[in-house]
Nucleic acid binder design. Structure first.
Lengths: 346, 346
DNA sequence: CTGTTAGCGCCTTCAT
DNA sequence: ATGAAGGCGCTAACAG
């Protein structure tokens, strides 16, 4: 193992400035008044030598790493490339930078693993002080993960997932209300046979969206038109196959609108609709959910319910940092508003 | 600043196992034979107590952080949400995990900044041992960044950017050849008036693509049909506006094919083409570059030149780690092959 | 207001 | 094969 080149240490700065190590430390931390002239001398030496305190040393001494983690629990190895995660990362990064925190990314595996490969390793090894966590897909193990996090007394924030107890921070969005409003809007525009596409892989946020959709249908006396098709997964192809099934029914008329559990599913539905020669939105209106970057670039641009993942990343990071710094954080449940974006598919 | 809860230390493990600290360390590192029975006793204690060595302490002692950085120099704050970066991150993460490294993300700002905010801070503070770096967009400052990296003796790999000297690792792809082949393919299929859309914001990789295109046109005696339209930026809208300009020319016939400097530009071109009632690919064939995830989902699915960003992330991380571990890395320039993906837009 | 002392958890060197 | 001592760079507590 090759060692890093030696960096400038506080001792060298002290010598260069002709003061004690302690004084340098005090200057760095704006501690109780160091004589101004000395302060200047030290600052000058710091800049001249290019001194930066060692993270390892500070971390060891203070028992904190000044690092936030973003932990993605997802069986899919490419999960990190998911645009939604990119949004969260961007948000966290902004806040972390502004607060002099670093950002560590990891994709722990939940399966039983060799010792030393525990999924809480970044916590246990003192690499991160707190984490934003997303539990993707379906897994019985998720509850175990949360339980262990709690038991380890970890500071963490969960994305789009509610959890009991007040150990965790939960970042939620108004999924149900967003779906309710989206459905109501379609109804107001004259649609009535509105279908919903979800997936057999349960996802709490989408569960809520489904509930919102059903509630809206019932509220408008349309319960007999409630229709849910389940995709085998969360992909465009899956959405297309679910839509096909809806279109192949012979015992009832086609839907005149469809809401996708997420944008990917909605895009798939659009493909299937066009494949049989139907027009969007004339014959069938399509609405997505998430508003990932590409929703506006498909044709026709998808109307969708915007979920503020970037802001979630920001708020989560802010909350975590506040908590770490001992500020009392008022709410452990933070609910961010969704927003309907109307484009051309409705 | 609240302190982390105290973790299990090596000392406690030693006591629990009834051996010396040293022995525990030896066991952890598979050092020269510890008596098997003792080994078992130690391992047992480690597992029972849930011991994980402190990253800060190890880092301090060894002068290494076992952490790789992904540094994105991009004026756009949302740059991290770029799907291309997501691919790189996913690739790096896989390799880092497999080698027991962590992954740190940062978006240093290049502009002159307060002391303590230097863009090499993650290096100087010993937070990372090496970094994969992408210099996005145009900037005179990029050369200065590289120079400073070299001077600081940093271990780093540059993405899609060639640099002289043998300090840096360069991860490149066959941009020119890919563009050459794509152009040739279009010609072989009977297209001749092939245009290229790039951007006024210079990007080395796209520069090479442009060169490949021009070389192919010349090689087939089509230099008089060479036509380049520049978008003001790298967005879909920019691509559309550039395409419009191409379509508004009155002094020469429309192109019968167009190659986008990247997929975003190509998608924009498709919008512009359809906006005037032309058909793809019948009237104008469209070809993209990058093959980001969504290329296959727009309609018609874009043919494109796949650039292996995920593999780049992997290879970059592998190379960096090998180098850090003292293995001699054969090549400082690693060139990954692009691959033409034919879909329905050509 | 400045300097000295001690120790965070770990690993390397030396001694046993 | 195992134990003791020292120090990586830093900061909190105390001493001057």
């Amino acid at each position: 193992m090759k060692l890093r080149k030696r960096n400038v240490t506080i001792r060298e700065v002290a010598r260069a400035a002709g003061v004690s190590i302690q004084t340098v430390s005090n200057v760095m931390h704006n501690k109780s008044s160091v004589r101004p002239e000395i302060q200047v001398r030290v600052l000058d030496a710091i800049k001249r030598l290019g001194y930066y305190p060692s993270q390892s040393a500070q971390g060891l001494r203070q028992g904190a790493s000044l690092t936030l983690g973003f932990l993605v629990f997802d069986p899919n190895p490419r999960a990190l490339a998911d645009p939604v995660h990119g949004e969260v990362i961007a948000g966290m990064n902004d806040v972390a930078r502004a607060n002099n925190y670093s950002l560590l990314i990891d994709t722990p595996s939940i399966r039983p693993e060799a010792p030393g490969e525990h999924f809480l390793r970044p916590f246990y090894t003192n690499r991160i002080d707190a984490a934003v966590i997303t539990l993707s897909g379906t897994s019985d193990l998720h509850d175990a993960v949360i339980a262990e996090l709690v038991e380890a007394n970890a500071v963490f924030a969960l994305l789009e997932r509610e959890v009991s107890g007040d150990q965790a921070f939960c970042l939620l969005s108004t999924n149900a209300a967003g779906a309710y409003d989206a459905t109501s809007l379609l109804i107001k525009r004259g649609r009535s046979r509105i279908a919903f596409i979800d997936s057999i892989q349960v996802w709490p946020a989408v569960e809520q969206r489904l509930q919102g959709y059903m509630r809206a249908m019932r509220a408008h006396g349309l319960e007999s038109h409630i229709q849910v098709a389940s995709s085998p997964d969360w992909t465009v192809e899956g959405g297309a196959s679910a839509m096909q099934r809806l279109l192949n029914q012979t015992d009832r008329p086609w839907p005149d609108a469809v809401i996708g559990g997420n944008d990917l599913l909605a895009v798939g539905a659009m493909h299937a609709i066009r494949a049989v020669g139907l027009r969007i939105p004339d014959d069938i209106a399509v609405m997505g959910f998430d508003d990932f970057e590409f929703a506006r670039y498909v044709e026709p641009a998808i109307s969708t319910v915007h979920v503020p993942y970037y802001d979630m990343g920001r708020r989560a990071a802010e909350t975590l940092i506040d908590h770490l710094q001992g500020k009392t954080v008022a709410e452990r449940r933070i609910i961010l508003p969704t927003r309907i974006i109307l484009r051309r598919s409705t």
